[in-house]
Amino acid sequence: MRIARYLNIAFAAVLAAGAAHAELAGDAETGKELFDVCSGCHEIGNGAQDSIGPHLNGLFGRRAATHEGFAYSKSMQRAGVDGLTWTFETLDAYIANPLALVSKTRMSFPGLDDSQERADLMAYLRMFSDNPSNIPEAEPTARGTDHDVDPAILALQGDPEYGEYLSTECLTCHQSDGSAQGIPSITRWPEENFVVAMHAYKNKLRRHPVMQMMAGRLSNEEIASLAAYFKDLE
Rank of each mutant, 00 (worst) to 15 (best):
L99C: 01
N57R: 05
G216E: 01
A224V: 10
F109M: 10
P110C: 12
G144Q: 06
L15T: 00
E234F: 09
E23T: 05
A19E: 06
I95P: 03
N134M: 08
T66A: 01
T66V: 03
I95E: 03
E169P: 15
A10N: 04
E169S: 13
D113E: 15
N134T: 04
L154T: 08
H21I: 15
S73D: 04
Q175G: 12
M127N: 09
E222F: 09
A48R: 06
E164P: 03
Y229G: 13
F60I: 02
H208I: 03
T105L: 00
H199W: 13
A19T: 12
Y72R: 11
T87W: 10
A123M: 10
L91Y: 00
D159T: 07
I186Y: 02
Y124I: 00
E161N: 14
A10T: 02
E192L: 06
R63V: 14
Y72Q: 13
Y6T: 01
M107C: 04
Y201P: 04
A10H: 01
T141N: 04
M127C: 11
Y165V: 10
L24C: 11
F35M: 02
H174L: 07
F70V: 13
L7N: 05
P54E: 06
I3S: 07
L34I: 03
G26D: 05
G40R: 01
P151W: 09
H42G: 14
S179R: 03
G53Q: 13
T85N: 08
P209V: 06
A16E: 15
D150F: 06
C38W: 08
H199E: 06
Y229E: 09
A48V: 10
K104C: 12
P160H: 09
G216V: 13
I135N: 04
S219H: 12
L121G: 05
Q181M: 08
L112G: 05
D146L: 03
E161P: 07
D148M: 10
R206Y: 08
A228C: 11
D159Y: 11
T90N: 05
A152G: 10
G182D: 01
N220V: 04
M198G: 13
P209R: 14
D82I: 03
A100L: 02
D50Y: 07
A65E: 04
T66R: 02
S103P: 01
R118D: 07
C170Q: 15
A20L: 06
A152K: 09
F11K: 11
Q175E: 12
V149T: 14
F35V: 00
N203P: 13
G26M: 01
N8H: 12
S225G: 14
S75C: 07
E222N: 14
E234I: 15
G144F: 11
T145M: 15
Q175M: 15
G163K: 12
A17G: 05
